[in-house]
Amino acid sequence: MKVDWFTLIAQIINFLILLVLLKYFLFDRIVRIMDRRKEKISQKLEEADQKKAEAEQELQEYHRKQQELEEQKEEILAEKRKEGEETKKKLLEKARQEAEGLRNQWIQKFSQEKEEFLNDLRREAGQQIYQISHRVLSDLADSDLENQIVKTFLKRLDNLESDREKEIKKTLGENKHKILVRTSFKLTNEVKEEISDRIQKRFSKTHEFDFQQSDQLKIGIELKIGEHKISWNINQYLDTLEEKFREKLEEQEMVKTSESAKTQEDDKKAGEIHGSNDSGREKSESESQQKNAGED
């Protein structure tokens, strides 16, 4: 069998040509395009991963910010609440101070008025008592009352403490003082003599006597030797009466202040108490005046 070398070589060359052309036209291109697509896809996946990571990061950021905002809100709320409480406390304190101030003012005013009232009362009572006593005493036998006053005075003179007696004696010994005897009423000569006898007896010396009548004493008798004074006076009783009055009023005041301390809540109430007190006081004053007038 003859070998057809031409066909063999031609087929080899054909194959080589086909190899080169297919490599160029098919395999290289297809492989390149597939690789490129693969790369592109992986790139896209990578991008997607990156974007996902970014999104997650952003989400975390957002969550963090939200939390921060929440915390800030809480802080602000707490602060405001605290401020509000402080303001409330301040206002309450202010109100309490104002109420306290008003109360003090009222107490001051009240005590002042009480003082005035007491003065008025003392004067009034003194006058009344004097008038009443005077009327009573004058209605009773004149001489008897006067004698009684003198008797009381003399008894007092007898009961004089020894220290004072010595001092008076000393004064009398040093200077020749006139012994001044003031009375609210007219003394009879007999009485005058009795008084002078008793004094001379007491201090065992003769002295000049000066008898005077004075309205200042109201009802009473007074012995004045130099700076020493021995007296019996209705004023003393009036003073005691005044003292009693004062005590009574103070007791009442104590009760009232304790009550107001219990009910001290705001200025309004304090104002109300003040007002009602004012009106009460006015009422009592007018009542006492009416009483006085009735007695007159």
Binding site: D4, F6, T7, A10, Q11, N14, I17, L18, L21, L22, F25, L26, R29, I30, I33, R36, R37, K40
Partner: peptide, 29 residues
């Protein structure tokens, strides 16, 4: 000699290269 072997080889080559060339002219990524 241009026998059937060579001729049909060329035909096959033409088909293969033709299709490849036609298709790979505009490939899509």
């Amino acid at each position: 000699t241009l026998n059937a072997t060579i001729v049909f080889t060329w035909v096959i080559m033409l088909i293969l290269i033709g299709i490849s060339w036609m298709v790979t002219r505009n490939l899509s990524e």
